[in-house]
Simulated assay, not measured.
Amino acid sequence: MSQAQLTVSHHMTADGVHVVVLAGEIDHTTTDLFRQALTAQGGFAPHTVIDFRAVTFMDSSGINVLVAANNAARAGNGWLRLAHTPKPLAELLHIVGLDDVITLYPTLEQALTPQTAA
Protein backbone atom coordinates (compact mmCIF):
# COMPACT_ATOMS: atom_id res chain seq x y z
CA MET A 1 0.00 0.00 0.00
CA SER A 2 1.49 3.33 -1.03
CA GLN A 3 1.31 6.52 0.95
CA ALA A 4 -1.15 9.13 -0.29
CA GLN A 5 0.21 12.23 -1.99
CA LEU A 6 -1.04 15.76 -1.37
CA THR A 7 0.29 18.98 -2.83
CA VAL A 8 -0.60 22.33 -1.39
CA SER A 9 -0.21 25.90 -2.55
CA HIS A 10 -1.58 28.94 -0.82
CA HIS A 11 -1.59 32.70 -0.98
CA MET A 12 -3.25 35.69 0.62
CA THR A 13 -5.55 37.89 -1.47
CA ALA A 14 -5.29 41.68 -1.38
CA ASP A 15 -8.27 41.81 0.99
CA GLY A 16 -6.80 39.28 3.42
CA VAL A 17 -8.44 36.00 2.41
CA HIS A 18 -6.18 32.97 2.78
CA VAL A 19 -6.62 30.78 -0.33
CA VAL A 20 -5.47 27.16 -0.07
CA VAL A 21 -5.34 25.04 -3.24
CA LEU A 22 -5.07 21.27 -2.77
CA ALA A 23 -4.33 18.41 -5.15
CA GLY A 24 -4.28 14.69 -4.36
CA GLU A 25 -5.55 12.70 -1.41
CA ILE A 26 -6.36 13.76 2.14
CA ASP A 27 -6.04 10.92 4.61
CA HIS A 28 -4.22 10.14 7.86
CA THR A 29 -0.86 10.32 6.07
CA THR A 30 -1.46 13.81 4.65
CA THR A 31 -3.59 15.58 7.27
CA ASP A 32 -0.56 17.17 8.93
CA LEU A 33 0.32 18.85 5.64
CA PHE A 34 -3.32 19.90 5.19
CA ARG A 35 -3.47 21.35 8.74
CA GLN A 36 -0.14 23.14 8.27
CA ALA A 37 -1.39 24.76 5.06
CA LEU A 38 -4.40 26.13 6.91
CA THR A 39 -2.29 27.38 9.80
CA ALA A 40 0.59 28.76 7.76
CA GLN A 41 0.16 32.21 9.28
CA GLY A 42 0.72 30.98 12.85
CA GLY A 43 -2.91 30.02 13.39
CA PHE A 44 -6.08 29.47 11.44
CA ALA A 45 -6.79 32.53 9.28
CA PRO A 46 -10.12 34.22 10.01
CA HIS A 47 -11.12 34.11 6.32
CA THR A 48 -10.10 31.06 4.32
CA VAL A 49 -11.17 29.52 1.02
CA ILE A 50 -10.07 25.98 0.21
CA ASP A 51 -10.05 25.01 -3.46
CA PHE A 52 -10.73 21.26 -3.67
CA ARG A 53 -10.87 20.98 -7.48
CA ALA A 54 -7.96 18.52 -7.70
CA VAL A 55 -8.64 16.51 -4.53
CA THR A 56 -9.41 12.91 -5.41
CA PHE A 57 -10.08 11.47 -1.95
CA MET A 58 -10.72 12.59 1.63
CA ASP A 59 -11.38 10.51 4.72
CA SER A 60 -12.48 11.36 8.26
CA SER A 61 -9.08 12.78 9.17
CA GLY A 62 -9.64 15.52 6.57
CA ILE A 63 -13.13 16.12 7.96
CA ASN A 64 -11.57 16.64 11.40
CA VAL A 65 -9.20 19.28 10.01
CA LEU A 66 -12.11 21.08 8.32
CA VAL A 67 -14.14 21.07 11.55
CA ALA A 68 -11.20 22.50 13.52
CA ALA A 69 -10.52 25.17 10.88
CA ASN A 70 -14.18 26.14 10.70
CA ASN A 71 -14.48 26.36 14.50
CA ALA A 72 -11.35 28.51 14.71
CA ALA A 73 -12.54 30.81 11.94
CA ARG A 74 -15.94 31.29 13.58
CA ALA A 75 -14.33 31.90 16.97
CA GLY A 76 -12.42 34.75 15.30
CA ASN A 77 -15.61 36.14 13.67
CA GLY A 78 -14.45 34.76 10.34
CA TRP A 79 -15.45 32.04 7.92
CA LEU A 80 -14.25 29.01 6.02
CA ARG A 81 -15.51 28.40 2.48
CA LEU A 82 -14.95 25.50 0.10
CA ALA A 83 -14.69 25.89 -3.66
CA HIS A 84 -14.74 23.44 -6.57
CA THR A 85 -15.69 20.54 -4.31
CA PRO A 86 -15.81 17.37 -6.46
CA LYS A 87 -19.05 15.39 -6.27
CA PRO A 88 -17.65 12.50 -4.16
CA LEU A 89 -16.27 14.97 -1.60
CA ALA A 90 -19.47 17.02 -1.63
CA GLU A 91 -21.42 13.82 -0.95
CA LEU A 92 -19.11 12.97 1.96
CA LEU A 93 -19.56 16.46 3.41
CA HIS A 94 -23.32 16.06 3.04
CA ILE A 95 -23.33 12.65 4.77
CA VAL A 96 -21.55 14.07 7.82
CA GLY A 97 -23.63 17.26 7.74
CA LEU A 98 -20.68 19.58 7.20
CA ASP A 99 -22.27 21.16 4.12
CA ASP A 100 -24.85 22.66 6.53
CA VAL A 101 -22.04 24.33 8.47
CA ILE A 102 -19.48 25.26 5.80
CA THR A 103 -20.66 26.85 2.56
CA LEU A 104 -19.66 25.14 -0.68
CA TYR A 105 -19.20 27.29 -3.79
CA PRO A 106 -19.03 26.04 -7.38
CA THR A 107 -16.06 28.30 -8.22
CA LEU A 108 -13.16 29.95 -6.46
CA GLU A 109 -14.31 33.33 -7.72
CA GLN A 110 -17.73 32.91 -6.09
CA ALA A 111 -16.15 31.78 -2.82
CA LEU A 112 -13.97 34.91 -2.82
CA THR A 113 -16.87 37.28 -3.48
CA PRO A 114 -17.77 39.24 -0.34
CA GLN A 115 -21.04 38.05 1.13
CA THR A 116 -23.42 40.25 3.05
CA ALA A 117 -24.47 37.41 5.37
CA ALA A 118 -21.81 34.72 5.07
Score class of each variant (00 low, 15 high):
residue 20 V to D: 02
residue 20 V to K: 05
residue 20 V to I: 09
residue 21 V to T: 13
residue 24 G to N: 11
residue 26 I to C: 11
residue 26 I to M: 13
residue 26 I to A: 04
residue 27 D to P: 14
residue 27 D to A: 09
residue 30 T to M: 12
residue 30 T to A: 13
residue 32 D to M: 15
residue 33 L to Y: 06
residue 34 F to K: 02
residue 36 Q to A: 15
residue 37 A to V: 07
residue 37 A to R: 06
residue 39 T to V: 05
residue 41 Q to L: 10
residue 42 G to S: 10
residue 44 F to N: 04
residue 45 A to V: 08
residue 45 A to D: 05
residue 46 P to H: 01
residue 46 P to L: 02
residue 47 H to N: 06
residue 49 V to D: 00
residue 51 D to W: 12
residue 53 R to Q: 13
residue 54 A to N: 15
residue 54 A to H: 09
residue 54 A to E: 10
residue 57 F to N: 07
residue 59 D to E: 10
residue 62 G to T: 15
residue 67 V to W: 07
residue 69 A to K: 08
residue 70 N to Y: 14
residue 71 N to T: 10
residue 75 A to W: 11
residue 76 G to Y: 04
residue 78 G to F: 03
residue 80 L to F: 01
residue 81 R to V: 08
residue 81 R to S: 02
residue 83 A to R: 09
residue 83 A to W: 13
residue 83 A to N: 08
residue 83 A to L: 12
residue 84 H to L: 02
residue 90 A to G: 13
residue 91 E to G: 01
residue 91 E to T: 12
residue 91 E to V: 09
residue 92 L to S: 03
residue 92 L to I: 04
residue 93 L to G: 06
residue 95 I to P: 03
residue 96 V to T: 14
residue 98 L to F: 13
residue 98 L to N: 03
residue 99 D to A: 08
residue 99 D to P: 05
residue 103 T to V: 15
residue 104 L to G: 10
residue 105 Y to H: 15
